[in-house]
Amino acid sequence: MAKKTPEINASSTADIAFLLLAFFLATTTMNVDSGLYRRLPPYQPENTEAPKYAKRNILQVLVNRNNQLAINGELADVSTLKDRTIEFVLNPNNSEDLPQKEVKMIDLLGPVEVSKGIVSLQSDKGTSYEMYIAVQDQLTAAYNELRNRKANEKFGKNFDDLTEEQMEAIRKAVPMSVSEAEPKNIGGKK
């Protein structure tokens, strides 16, 4: 009779398979979409008149086809936009040129001064999307910081750590009022 080869111990292959399984479970991250969330205004028929606002309540942000940025008519760098927006919304010295504030009653917060300021963003058809996102990013950063400050002042916590109701209250106290003007075609380039 031929000599029998001893059976190989297979009990550890299970461990190897489990190890593989665990490795793939841990490493496969499904790529989650991220971005800047916005709500578009409802569609307005062409001939409706735009509502009028006092000049001091508007921060005019223009981006032209050469990707240059102008804040209230003056050329500026994108990196300054965040601070300009924060200053604009807060109006710390109650200056005559910066937006008015309105005292509103908000649940959980009581009477709060809410800025009437609106950021008016106008881009050209020739503006690059990258520049547009950079501007939107700066504006978002400004409002996020304002909300964070408000949250710290009222609740002593960062905005992200608040409960849903508290977040809603802060959102009302610091509304993100970025208005995008109806598109214009200044540069003539598509």
Partner: peptide, 21 residues
């Protein structure tokens, strides 16, 4: 460039689908 993006946004507004990322 923003031209096509603005056009898309206008179309979305017309279609009343306003949540955008």
């Amino acid at each position: 460039t923003m031209g096509i993006v603005t056009d898309i946004k206008q179309e979305l507004r017309k279609a009343n689908s306003l949540r955008v990322n």
